[in-house]
Design a protein around this nucleic acid. Structure first.
Lengths: 155, 155
DNA sequence: AATTGCGGTTTCGAAATTCGCAAAAAATTA
DNA sequence: TAATTTTTTGCGAATTTCGAAACCGCAATT
C-alpha cells in the first residue's frame, strides 16, 4: 500500500478542487517541479489512489429521483445479489452492511415511475432478495468527494 | 435549464471514462471539431451540469470505515441539522428523506474509534437530533459516478 | 573508501493540447 | 425577409504534456 506524504496530499487536494488543473499550475502552487507533480500523480493513479472523473449533477441530466434502498437477503445470497445490483446502471453505490440490511444501495431515476418499476418489477423478482425498504430522497444537501483534509494525519 | 443533445451526452460519456481526456481526442472520437467540444464543455460547466474532479479511493487514503447513518430529528429542525452535518469533513453525502429518517448521511472515518467519536460525542450532542441509526459498511461493491447512458432518452 | 543499484527528482526540447479570437454558418426572433 | 443571437469553424500563439536523459541521495555491497 502506497504511503502518501505531504506532497501527495497537497496534489490530491489541489486536484479535487479542479480535476483539470495542469501539472504546471499545481507545481507553481507548491513551489515544486512539474516533473515531480507528474511523477506523483502517475504513481498514485497506478496504485489506485484516485482517478480523474467528472461529477455530473443528476438532476441536470434528468435524473430527478434519488433513493437509498435497504435490502434484506436470504442467507448466503448477499454476494450474488450485491454483484447483480452493481451491474444496474441506475445504481451508483452498492455496499454490504452490518445490521438490519445486508445490502444498501443508492440509485438515480428519471421519475418516480421508473423508481417504482425498479423496485416492483425488477428488485422484487431478484432471486435472493427477501425484503426492501426504500428511502426516498427529497433534497440534496451535500454530495461531494472532497474528503482530503491536510490537517488529518491518519494516512 | 440547459437541454443536452446527443453531442453533449457523448462528451459527458467520454469524460466519465477519463476526466482528463483531451478535447482533441474527444473531437477525434466523434468526428467533430475541437472548438465544438470546448464550447460544449464550457457551456455545460457554466450551467452546472458537471465538474471535473478526482475520485479518491477512501481506503487508499486511510479512511477504512464507511457508514450510512439515518437521523431522526425534532420537528422543524431538519434543515438546521442537515446544514450543520453538511459542514463536517467526514460527511460526503447529506440528504433529506421521506419516511423513518428525516436525514440520511454517508460518512468516512479512519477507524471505528473515530466513528464512535462522531456518533457518541458529536451527533448525540447536536441540537435537534432525536435518534440515529448507524449502518456500518462491511464491503464496497460499487461506488461510481458514471450514470450517463446514451441509450436513455430522459434528458 | 569506492561501487552499485534504486527510487525519486530535475531538466529540457519536441509534440500535443489548449486558448483566444475573428469569420462563417446556422438557428431564432422580429 | 432582415436582424440578431447562437453555434461552429479555423487558425496561429501560448501553454501544457510527455519522454528521456542526467542527476541526486542513500543504503547495501564490495
Amino acid at each position: 500500500m502506497l504511503k502518501l506524504d505531504q506532497t501527495d496530499l497537497r496534489i490530491l487536494q489541489s486536484l479535487q478542487a479542479d480535476g483539470r488543473r495542469p501539472y504546471t499550475e499545481i507545481a507553481k502552487q507548491y513551489g515544486i517541479s512539474e516533473g515531480k507533480v507528474r511523477f506523483r500523480i502517475n504513481r498514485m493513479m497506478e496504485s489506485g489512489v484516485f482517478e480523474f472523473v467528472i461529477h455530473t449533477n443528476p438532476s441536470k441530466i434528468g435524473l430527478h429521483v434519488q433513493a437509498i434502498i435497504g435490502i434484506v437477503t436470504k442467507v448466503g445470497y448477499r454476494d450474488k445479489v450485491a454483484m447483480e445490483l452493481a451491474d444496474c446502471k441506475e445504481v451508483r453505490f452498492v455496499g454490504a452492511f452490518a445490521g438490519k440490511y445486508e445490502i444498501m444501495i443508492q440509485a438515480y431515476f428519471p421519475s418516480n415511475d421508473r423508481l417504482i418499476e425498479f423496485t416492483d418489477l425488477y428488485l422484487s423478482k431478484v432471486d435472493g432478495i427477501e425484503a426492501t425498504d426504500v428511502f426516498l430522497e427529497l433534497k440534496d444537501y451535500k454530495d461531494s468527494f472532497s474528503y482530503i483534509d491536510l490537517a488529518d494525519e491518519h494516512i
